[in-house]
Amino acid sequence: MTPPFAVIAVLTIAAAVAAMTLRNLVHSALAIAVAFIGLAATYLQLNAQFVGLTQILVYVGAVAILIVFAILLTRGGEAPEKSVFSLSWIWGVLVTLAVFATLVWAIKHSFVVERETSVTAPEANVQQIGQALMTRFVLPLEVIGLLLTAALVGAVIIAMKEESVKAKIEDGRSKMDEPANPSSILHPPSSRGGQR
């Protein structure tokens, strides 16, 4: 165990424990972001550049921010009154221990441990991954691009303002056979709007 690894490991675990125990949800979210960064550092230290950078981009950049947004939009971040410790923790601890024991058992009995000569891991840096994506896997990459287009269109459609839909449905009840007026972005002025 090298000193840098020890520092990163302690930091990551401390941040994870903090995320679990802190009362204030915003503090927990920040702590979990630190834990994500610690994991990314571990990956980078293992020479897995791509995984490390992806961890930073996806988890620190997107997931942590998403969590913060969710907290801010839903409950404003006030701390809960009652203690975070409860009886159900016993079960949680038991499950955790069982999972940990299984993992330890699996690793102990894995053939990787018994292998004497350490195999040199194949080099996979960001450049190689980029080249593979743009040459051999260019077709799946393009299809993923199409997928993201479809997903983006769908996200806009599903997340658009609710009231225009309701107005439309009430409208449609009365005159079902007329062709709809599917204004995509601008919802039509409501018929009652001017008279109020």
């Binding site: 997928l147 769908g154 079902m176 709809a180 599917p182 995509s184």
Partner: peptide, 25 residues
């Protein structure tokens, strides 16, 4: 069916076509 779709009828068509492209692939 389009008179029962409140918003984005052409998006509905194009998503059907995108799904079709996925099936072709």
């Amino acid at each position: 069916f389009s008179d029962r779709i409140a918003t984005g009828v052409s998006e509905y068509y194009s998503l059907i076509i995108f799904a079709l492209a996925g099936m072709l692939f």
